[in-house]
């Protein structure tokens, strides 16, 4: 997002005295560029800003596909209060936040640790092999991942139950077992994503000035001291930016994966805000109610992103914008 800052200078320098004549001349001069941007801007306005306009439904009683957005009765914040007072509110909020918490605490450091360990490997061939193999799971579709979890959970000879029997435990129905939902969700996410996410940190590690390491060595720093005083500070900005982005998605869980994984008997732990929005909105056609919940979600995410970014910019000057 550094780019935006650079462009600011270019734009403001270009505005001359007569704005209209300038705009007209500019439109003629770059007419083909503007022509290229017509479908692009149309796409963003229709498919991104269109739904944002549709968010006004959140303040209406009901939505009729025939009459359109402004035909409904305005009810202010009723949809939101209904949600806050609903039986499911605390369960949905808790499940969403618990999954996010574990994803951040366990899932966020995993690729960083992997990158740091890979960085210490001297054999190029070995490093490449680890990278190639650990990136592979990233390309498996979510349906197949959940399908794999499901076949591994089979009572008869499923891998998970084979492992359980090694320790003398009885086979278990993993998919209907409440206690197993969170570990399966989090661990399979890490299995699938840690390798691929380490790329960005490896890039940051490769960008650290090698002179810093030389200087540290001269000062008598061993590998541990180098890690603490050169390597970690070197990738700190990347870590902070990734963490800010992650905080901007705290209210999102992987809706596709959870919809595929959840069974009625695990709703108590597996039902999150986004799966509820899907069921309530798409399957039960409670359009305005589910839009309100979605809006709430989006606002919380965006607020967290902005606040985290502001704090980070104050504290150590690495930020998204």
């Amino acid at each position: 997002m550094e780019l935006i800052r650079q462009e600011r200078a270019a734009d403001s320098a270009a505005v001359p005295r007569g704005r209209i004549t300038f705009l007209r001349r500019e439109l003629v001069r770059n007419k083909y560029l503007y022509l290229m941007l017509v479908p692009v801007l149309a796409y963003y306005l229709i498919f991104h800003y269109g739904p944002m306009y549709g968010l006004m439904m959140a303040f209406q009683k009901s939505y009729s596909p025939v009459k359109g957005i402004f035909a409904g009765t305005w009810v202010g914040l009723d949809n939101f209060t209904t949600f806050f007072n609903s039986y499911y509110f605390w369960r949905l909020l808790r499940n969403t936040l618990v999954l996010s918490f574990y994803s951040i605490v366990l899932g966020f450091p995993a690729p960083i640790i992997l990158a740091l360990l890979l960085h210490e490997v001297r054999s190029k061939a070995f490093k490449r092999t680890v990278q190639t193999v650990s990136y592979l799971p990233h390309f498996i579709s979510v349906v197949v991942i959940v399908g794999m979890l499901s076949t591994f959970s089979a009572l008869d000879g499923g891998l998970f139950n084979v492992i359980r029997s090694l320790f003398g435990y009885e086979p278990m129905m993993f998919f209907t077992e409440q206690n197993m939902f969170r570990p399966m969700y989090i661990l399979s996410n890490i299995w699938q994503g840690a390798g691929w996410s380490s790329i960005i940190f490896l890039a940051a590690l490769a960008n650290i000035d090698s002179q810093l390491y030389e200087a540290a060595k001269i000062d008598g720093a061993g590998r541990w001291k180098q890690l603490l005083h050169v390597t970690l500070p070197g990738i700190m900005p990347t870590m902070i930016v990734m963490l800010i982005l992650r905080l901007g998605a705290v209210m999102n869980a992987d809706v596709q994966k959870i919809l595929l994984m959840q069974t009625a008997s695990t709703y108590e732990v597996s039902d999150v805000i986004s799966t509820f929005v899907y069921r309530s909105g798409v399957l039960e056609a409670n359009y305005t109610y589910s839009t309100a919940i979605g809006l709430l979600n989006g606002v919380v995410n965006f607020t967290l992103l902005v606040v985290a970014n502001a704090i980070s910019r104050k504290a150590n000057s690495s930020s998204l914008w």
């Binding site: 997002m1 739904p51 549709g54 968010l55 439904m57 901007g248 899907y278 909105g281 359009y287 979605g294």
Partner: peptide, 18 residues
């Protein structure tokens, strides 16, 4: 205009209805 959509959007239901 474009990068804003990375951080905020209409969400599932308004998009579905659109």
């Amino acid at each position: 205009l474009i990068t804003f959509t990375m951080f905020f959007g209409g969400g599932m239901i308004p998009t579905f209805l659109l």
